[in-house]
Amino acid sequence: MIKTLHQKVSLILIAIAAGYLYLSYNLKEYPYVPVDSDLVPKVLGYVLLVLAVALFFDKSSETEEEKEKRVVPKKEILVMAAVGGMIFVYIFLFEILGFLITTFVFILACSAFLGYRKWMTSLIVSIVFPGALYYVFNYLLQIRLPQGILPF
């Protein structure tokens, strides 16, 4: 019966270690070195396996403080997931639409979503911040951020 958090985490870690070890044993061989590229990964895989098993049987229960940290209201998880989703969409459109447009929309949408209602300030920040960053990167530092569909 799996009860504690430690045991759940431990099982996930064992799965990671097993997958990692499987890949380590299937690495391509290179004939001209005495110690090949698989040595360190194999060691790491077994170390993780041992540690994960040790965690499974670790008796020390969590402190109250640690437990408290894990109590996150369902609603907040949804908020975080939504922000995560926004980041995902941002990344997806980043090179297609360009830095300026995506960043403008993101700052406006994300801060409004999180409860910021001063539209004027929000609008100014979402234009000035990306604009300044874009100018500095593209024109002063010659590091090209994606231009996207805008002509500059």
């Binding site: 990344i91 700052i107 994300c110 999180l114 910021y116 929000s122 920040v125 911040f129 990306p130 590091i143």
Partner: peptide, 28 residues
């Protein structure tokens, strides 16, 4: 204000990674 700061920190991190890799994959 926090909501605005959060958006800016996210952008800061994303641009930070992009300006060394120039590859959207690393943003994911």
């Amino acid at each position: 204000p926090r909501p605005l700061l959060i958006s800016l920190v996210i952008i800061f991190s994303l641009i930070g990674v992009y300006s060394v890799s120039f590859n959207v994959f690393h943003l994911y």
